[in-house]
């Protein structure tokens, strides 16, 4: 079967549209809700799902995702639940591209060789590991290619241009641009502060760049998606669930608003050109 992520990116690029990627933590507030969120997001027109595997030591994450991870871990959620959940969704006809977002250790423990194959069988399309630079675990890259799992790498504002283009060469589908120095979490990242460093990186990278970390309002989403080819929103979605006593409806409403802002057609010239 074709890789849904690559297909989706091609489709959206053909229409000169923007990509919206939603991050949620597996098993927060519970596995049933995770499944519902993915189905609802697909209905709304979200382009990509990043499914976060909870980890005991999420050192790239701020308080929000630390909270959702600890919450899910207390219920015993693991990588195996992710395989199970995604293959179930695929059986039910869910077609949205799903990336596995996991710290390296759970994957390493499952097996560098075994993981990509199992992920593909379950219906994952890609993999993002926030604590894995392309220099390490080359075997994982090989296995991912073999099983058509798109491995997405990250570029940060501190990444030097030569390195950024090297990272992009290892990255499949798109490149994840970390919007700020710091951990994940809803904050005031603005397009004007970002654009200088971002443009330097944009110049040396051919693939689409998606901006993530710190995006929490539709206005930010709108501004940043004009700068890049799309945005990734995570902590703000988790916050919407957390602040409504673990109800998922407010998160769906929030994503709908974000999506509208990001997808809005304007005559503004894309910074790409």
């Amino acid at each position: 079967m074709k890789n849904r992520l690559l297909q989706k990116i091609r489709d959206v690029q053909k229409e000169k549209g923007k990509l919206f990627c939603a991050f949620i933590t597996l098993g927060y507030p519970d596995l049933k809700s995770t499944e519902q969120l993915i189905l609802e997001f697909e209905k709304l027109g979200v382009d990509i799902i990043e499914l976060g595997i909870p980890f005991s030591d999420p050192l790239a994450d701020g308080p929000t995702i630390q909270f959702s991870s600890e919450f899910a871990l207390r219920q015993g959620v693991s990588l195996l639940d992710a395989f199970h959940l995604v293959s179930n969704l695929r059986l039910r006809g869910c077609k949205i591209p799903i990336l596995c977002f996991s710290y390296l250790n759970p994957i390493y423990h499952f097996g560098i060789k075994a993981f990509p194959q199992k992920a593909r069988q379950s219906g994952f399309d890609g993999l993002i590991i926030p604590d894995l630079p392309p220099e390490e675990e080359k075997n994982l890259q090989k296995e991912c290619r073999r099983h058509e799992i798109s491995q997405v790498f990250l570029v940060a504002p501190t990444t030097r241009p030569e390195r950024a283009s090297q990272i992009a060469r290892s990255s499949s589908g798109f490149v994840y641009y970390v919007s700020l120095r710091g951990v994940t979490g809803a904050r005031q990242v603005s397009a004007s502060n970002l654009s200088r460093e971002f443009n330097k990186v944009q110049k040396v990278i051919k693939q689409p760049l998606l901006i993530g970390f710190g995006i929490s309002s539709p206005e930010q989403g709108r501004a940043l998606s004009r700068l890049a080819q799309g945005v990734i929103v995570g902590s703000a979605i988790i916050d919407a669930i957390r602040s409504s006593n673990h109800q998922i409806a407010p998160a769906i409403l929030f994503v709908e608003k974000m999506l509208r802002a990001v997808k809005e057609r304007t005559r503004a010239v894309s910074s790409r050109n």
């Binding site: 604590d131 630079p133 570029v155 501190t158 990444t159 030097r160 990272i167 970390v178 710091g182």
Partner: peptide
Amino acid sequence: HLGHFGIYGGRYVPETLFAAL
């Protein structure tokens, strides 16, 4: 040069830190 002692060691960090390292 990348800090490997046999299979151990290395640099498994968020990209933001790579330049600092």
